[in-house]
Design a binder for these strands. Sequence first.
DNA 1: TATATTTACGTAACTAGTTACGTAATTAAT
DNA 2: ATTAATTACGTAACTAGTTACGTAAATATA
Lengths: 331, 331
Amino acid sequence: MSFFDKVGVMAIGTRLRMLSEKMNEDASKIYEMYGVGLKPKWFPVFYVLSQEEEEEEEEEEKSITQIAQEIGHSHPSVSKIVREMLKSGIVLEKKDKNDRRKNNIQLTAKGKEMAIQIREQYMDVKTAVEETLSQSTHNMWQAIEEFEFLLDQNSMLQRVKEQKKIRENKKVKIISYQEKYRKFFRDINIAWITTYFKVEDTDLKALDNPEEYILNKGGSIVIALYENEPVGVCALIKMDDPKYDYELAKMAVSPKAKGKGIGWSLGKAVIQQAQSYGAQNVYLESNTILKPAINLYHKLGFKKIAGHPTPYERCNIQMVLTLDEDVIKIN
Amino acid sequence: MSFFDKVGVMAIGTRLRMLSEKMNEDASKIYEMYGVGLKPKWFPVFYVLSQEEEEEEEEEEKSITQIAQEIGHSHPSVSKIVREMLKSGIVLEKKDKNDRRKNNIQLTAKGKEMAIQIREQYMDVKTAVEETLSQSTHNMWQAIEEFEFLLDQNSMLQRVKEQKKIRENKKVKIISYQEKYRKFFRDINIAWITTYFKVEDTDLKALDNPEEYILNKGGSIVIALYENEPVGVCALIKMDDPKYDYELAKMAVSPKAKGKGIGWSLGKAVIQQAQSYGAQNVYLESNTILKPAINLYHKLGFKKIAGHPTPYERCNIQMVLTLDEDVIKIN
DNA sequence: TATATTTACGTAACTAGTTACGTAATTAAT
DNA sequence: ATTAATTACGTAACTAGTTACGTAAATATA
């Protein structure tokens, strides 16, 4: 197993499969040893059919889909297994009277006899496995259970995605606006607006003259660089409103640089900027169809507020971040 | 997963396979996410080819069998994977100069570039899996390692066999000889002798007249019953020798009742009998080709001794059990 | 009541591995 | 120097599952 030592957890799937194969090999031999004419892969189907009998005397038959659901297989898998078991005379099938699509399966007399025979094998296997598990400090059965639980909550794909984001975000640099990024600032904003909405006059005014409309009015613009290439922008605009100090606007990230946490970094930088200006709050406008954006704003601490006049047609939601000590502590 | 709750450890192999499939599914998506044109199942082969490069500059090629061994697959599996990788232009093959059977595989320039690309993915996956594992109290990676170790020492088949023996041995009853077992005593002994050796005159004397030759001379015979059927016998014969008190002889177990620990039970019963007679030791004769028997005698505490005259042709080993307090304590 | 959707289930094709087997090349034994 | 045994590896067939797809029956909807 030196391969696993080297590759480590990368090949965890392969390792599980190999262990499962080893177990299955032994399972075949165990079934042989007890002389029960049952293939290991039949067991799950056999089990659910034999179980029900004991509890409810009448209903001892189950449909293909029902069995598949109970044992966690696909229905074609159960269909194939049942056909094999039919050949061996362990089960019999009959069409459901009320629903003629259903194929109800139940144990034959031979199958029922097997169920009794197998009970001893079942006990022996159970004891043997449990004894083995109890000899280890990391109980594998419980470990699998825990692992499955953790994956249910957050899949491995999601977890890797998060790691990727964290690693790549370290390569993201946030810098102040420079004139050489003027074209980038304009293009990337127009690009994203046109994919969802129409460019409005109000947009063009600020995008064409950022110095005049944003910087000279006491605002600022930040640029995100990834491997020294600009991949995102965000502006902080001084507002002319007694209630709100600054507006977070013109945030845009290049689609090919998505999933690197760039939006977060830009937002953080702009908020920090606002704080250094002594702002009490930061305002923003957006549209609810931009779910990832709204989600990001929410994570940054913005809260939805009631309507406020906006020059943009596309905006249907307003949010505000209050910059008090609490927020500083959170970050 | 209610099925597993009910069936429990019986289906541990199935559960492992299902978890492995789930992991593999995510693995495919992860590879896709990183845009490396590598199928998950290629990874082990790819890995061993990319690893070696770094360590030894010259030898960056490996034969099919060599790869198979390192990653724990069968060689046809590697053969197929390599063929797929050849099509993708990741590896190239060339015949070994010294041994023209060998097909040496190495990464192409494209493959080497992939190795660099994949390093980041590798790190992310590693971190993600390790983080997941660290969140559980029963670490699955270590649990698998332990489980594999335990199976290496004693396979599941062996463990189940032992459980079967323990359970079935509880159904074995050891009783004293009765006249109705006279025929059984004779037949079962002749049966086993004829399968390995020839019946000798000395055998027939005792087998035909157990009362006269064994019981009336101060010895005894025990019968093993399994489900009320006689399945084994063993005699304790008073010896006419200053050094040895009693002889354990005529032990025979029905072949269909093997693996139930009947030999052990018979042996224990006879030794107990000897102790109750106040014996200092028990002697026996056997043949070294009967390995399970010799093994049993050894487990019962008998030790090999130097030659002692015997009337049987077939015997080539003598053993003695000394009945002092130590032995009693051990049992 | 006619039509659309959903459900049950069988068949076919695929997947990622395996074992079985045959052939050519190498190595060991006589 | 033959002959026998072993090794390397490819092909074929199998395994235990899967997804994809088609059909018939049942159910929901207009």
